[in-house]
Write a protein that binds this DNA or RNA. Structure first.
Lengths: 178, 178
DNA sequence: AGCTCATGGTTGACAATGCAACTAGATGCG
DNA sequence: CGCATCTAGTTGCATTGTCAACCATGAGCT
C-alpha cells in the first residue's frame, strides 16, 4: 500500500510506470462509487421534495451568493461546471419557473445577466434545508472532522492539478470572474 | 474518530439540527468539484484516445472481470450504476462495435447475458493503459498513501450508509452480486 | 472609420440516460 | 392445467446535456 511515494525517474515523459495495481485503486473506487450513490440520492431527495435538480439548486445558490444576486451567464456556467449552452438551457428553465430573470448586461451588450428572483430565493431557501440536511446526514455526520480535513486538502490538490494543466482541451476557461 | 454512529433522536422526524455552516462544507465542495473536473478529464482522454466513454469502459471492465467474461444484464446494470434501460442501450452500442455479444440466458429464457468478445478485451486492455495512467497522474500521484487510506475508509463508510438505508427510494437494489 | 478577429450567448442536431409502458417468460396457486 | 402475478429486458418518450454553427458585439489594427 504505502510504497509509491517514490515517484522517481520520469518527470516529463509519459513513459508509463507500472499501471496502478488493483489494490492501489481502493480510494479511487470508493471515490467513484460514493459519489455516484450519494449524488443520486441527494438529487432524488431534492427532486422529490422541491422539484429541483442539483444543477438547478447549485445555479440558484451561486446566484443568491453573488453580489447583487446576479451573474454573467458565462461565470455561472463556470461555477456550476456546465457548458455555455448547458447554462443557457438551465437558465431557460429557471426563468420559465419564475426563479430567475435574464437581463441584458449593461456594460457589454453581448452579455446577459441572470438574476435570481425573490421567489427563487425562497425556493432555494426551502430546498436548502432538504439538501443540506442530506449532506449532513449522509456525509458530514459520517465523516469525522479530521477525515474531512484530509479529504478537502487532498481533493483540492487534485482539482488544482487539473485546472493548472489546461492545455489540450480548453474546456474549462476559468477566466474573468467579477 | 467516528463519534456519530449514534444517529439519535430523529428516527422519523427530520428534526433538523443546525444546517451545516458554510465553513463545514469545504470537504463536501472539494469532493463535488474534484469529481466533476476529474471525471470530465478522464472521460475526455479516454474518448479521445480510444473512442470509449467511461461508462463503456466500466462495463467492459466488469464483464472482463466476471467469471466466464459474462454477466446478466441486470447485474451489469447494477455494477455500473445504470438503470436497466441504460444498460440495454449501452450494451447495444458495445455490441454494435463488436466488443460484446448478447446471448440468451440458458437458465432463464427471459434473460440475456452480455459477453465481452476477444476484441472487446483487447480494446479494454489498450484503453486501460490510458485510463489508469490518467488515474495515476491526476489522483494517485497527487494523493499520498495515507490520504488515500483515509479517503477510502471515510467514503466507503458514506457509501455503505447509503445502501443500508434503502428505504424510501429503492432505486439502488444492491441485490445479488455473485 | 473600416476590417478582422475574439468573445458571449443562443440555437439546432444529437447522445445518453431515466421512467413508464410493454412483451415474454417464470412462478405460484386453485 | 390455467390463470394471476412477478421479473428481465426492451422500447417510446421526455429530459438534460454537449458540440458545432451561428449571430451580435467588443477590441485591436491600419
Amino acid at each position: 500500500m504505502t510504497s509509491q511515494t517514490t515517484t522517481p525517474t520520469e518527470a516529463a515523459a509519459p513513459a508509463r510506470r507500472a499501471a496502478p495495481d488493483d489494490s492501489q485503486l481502493g480510494a479511487w473506487r470508493a471515490f467513484l462509487q460514493t459519489h455516484a450513490r450519494l449524488l443520486h440520492r441527494l438529487d432524488e431527495e431534492l427532486q422529490a421534495a422541491h422539484g429541483l435538480s442539483l444543477a438547478e439548486y447549485d445555479a440558484l445558490l451561486q446566484l443568491a451568493a453573488a453580489p447583487d444576486r446576479r451573474l454573467r451567464m458565462s461565470v455561472l456556467a463556470d461555477r456550476v461546471l456546465l457548458s455555455r449552452s448547458g447554462i443557457t438551457r438551465l437558465v431557460d428553465r429557471l426563468v420559465a419557473d419564475g426563479m430567475v430573470q435574464r437581463y441584458p448586461c449593461s456594460s457589454d451588450a453581448r452579455g446577459s445577466m441572470a438574476v435570481i428572483t425573490a421567489q427563487g430565493v425562497n425556493r432555494l431557501r426551502t430546498a436548502s434545508r432538504t439538501h443540506l440536511d442530506g449532506v449532513r446526514r449522509f456525509f458530514l455526520d459520517v465523516v469525522s472532522a479530521d477525515e474531512q480535513d484530509v479529504i478537502e486538502q487532498a481533493l483540492q490538490r487534485v482539482s488544482d492539478g487539473l485546472v493548472g494543466r489546461l492545455g489540450e482541451d480548453g474546456a474549462c476557461p476559468s477566466m474573468a470572474d467579477a
